[in-house]
């Protein structure tokens, strides 16, 4: 059933599912992060830096932000479609959002790379 719904015939279904899957990934990451922070409680720069440095933490964080940007892209697109009725204006706003999210992606890669 689900596989059938995910074919090219129903493109919206994949967007719908992407929004949910990215939400689940983010929720798991955030809960794990909160637990880890409460256990380790990094209190200064050295401790915080040691907390962030491991490659698996940085990869997980990159995955989190990729999900976040995808999730935000889908959500903001829905909001724009609901409230901005002028098609030209909406296209420009959507483009601004797309560019911003792409820049954020490069930005977070840059930050995580240089930790």
């Amino acid at each position: 059933m689900l596989i059938q719904l995910l074919t090219n015939k129903y493109p919206g279904m994949r967007l719908w599912l992407s929004q949910r899957l990215t939400a689940v990934v983010m929720a798991v990451y955030i809960v794990l992060l909160l637990v880890a922070l409460l256990i380790i409680q990094p209190a200064d720069y050295a401790a915080w830096h040691a907390f962030v440095s491991p490659i698996w933490f940085r990869l997980a964080t990159l995955l989190f932000f990729m999900c976040l940007f995808m999730h935000a892209w889908l959500g903001v697109a829905d909001v724009l479609k609901d409230y901005v009725f002028n098609k030209v204006l909406r296209a420009y706003l959507q483009m601004a959002v797309d560019v911003a999210l792409m820049l954020y992606l490069f930005w977070i890669i840059y930050i995580l790379w240089n930790v």
Partner: peptide, 26 residues
Amino acid sequence: GVGLFLVLPLILLAFQASVDSPSSYL
């Protein structure tokens, strides 16, 4: 959700400052 989207650059900026150097952390 819209609010969180709008503060994304601030969150990224804060995260960058926190890991960049001891002085930016401070």
